[in-house]
Computed example of a mutant assay.
Amino acid sequence: MTTGKLVCILFAVASSHFLIVTSLRLLSGDHYCDRTHLPSTESLRSDQFTVLINGYSESRIRILQTVTGVYASSPSVAAVVVLWGNPNTPSETLVELSHNLSISSPGDAPISVIRQPSSSLNARFLPRPWISTRAVLICDDDIEVDSKSIQFAFNIWKSRSNNPEQLVGLFARSHELDLTSRSWIYTVHPDRYSILLTKFMFMKTEYLYHYSCAGGESMAEARSIVDEMRNCEDILMNFVAANKTGVGPVLVGAKSVRDWGDARNDGGRRRQRRELTVAGEVSVGLSSRKKGHRKNRGDCIKEFHRVLGKMPLRYSYGKMVDSIGEQGLCEKNGKLVFCDQQLSN
């Protein structure tokens, strides 16, 4: 090998490493709320969406490789970005993660890892100058959704009139006024919902700016409540969206979802794909949580109502389903099976 070729190879390797490290840099110096640094709404493309995955635990890195691969394989995905919020994770670990996700991706959409400027949960909603799409999918690092259901949810988001404003997602909860205590509570209803979780939620990219930069002192105080509680950023985003739309969110059904973070998982041996329903997954999911969790979430609703001066949350009913792909689960001989198998021998 000649000296010239060796120099070129070393330069290429160094450049590649530099690009990866640069993508992991701290972004604290960026002016997130400066409109001049953000693309205009008119320039954002509507035929694709950007996936923003909230990452924190190094124990879920293996799951991330699967989850990001599913998103990157979709022709409707412009980019997949893991927003890493754990300040204690070594940069070397994130460099390796970024490299592995990129080289192992089965799709064409680029995958990158960006270290968040802080561990605040509010950081997942910072407006980003590199987002080129009108919609973003906010999701967690432990939720695996089949590709057809991802596309179905995106199609529903696009179909919400000529200017889609409503949140669209898979996991629903509700607020309610407790008449005994005369205070807001966080709960679930079998027939209505008013809150979508950021486990999997489509929304307008513009809402990132409204959450992080608009609303003056009231929203600043609401964001400080999120930091104090270390919770409820999803509820606050629902407040933001409902305040803009005056209507509730849209729940969609999925053919299959694997929630790797669900407390009902048994060491990986009994992780099962299950159907999402308002009366099914939601009620079981809440019952698996400690009561303190629900109380804290109710306190967030109460505090957001107080500091913002209004209750914008509105109820929605039912859910949008893919009539061909979706099946319910029914009981047969003491086991849960797809309902269309119930009558088979």
Rank of each mutant, 00 (worst) to 15 (best):
H293Q: 06
L286N: 09
R273C: 15
D266W: 03
G280S: 03
P249V: 00
E326A: 05
A263S: 14
K310G: 06
R314V: 02
R270E: 10
L329I: 12
R271N: 03
R269T: 10
V321P: 02
E275F: 06
L276I: 11
D299G: 07
E275Q: 13
S288D: 10
K244T: 06
R306F: 07
W260Q: 00
S288I: 00
R273N: 13
R289G: 07
M311R: 02
S283L: 12
R294K: 11
R264T: 04
P312A: 04
Q272N: 07
S256D: 13
F304A: 03
A279W: 08
Q327W: 15
T245F: 03
R274V: 14
G248N: 05
A279D: 10
I324R: 11
L286R: 10
G285T: 03
Q272C: 05
D262C: 13
Q327K: 11
G248W: 02
G248L: 03
L308E: 02
H305R: 11
R269V: 09
V278C: 01
E275P: 14
E281Q: 12
E326R: 08
D266Y: 03
S323D: 13
G285R: 00
S323A: 14
Y315K: 00
V321C: 06
S287D: 10
K291W: 08
M311Q: 05
G328N: 09
V252N: 05
Q327A: 07
R297E: 04
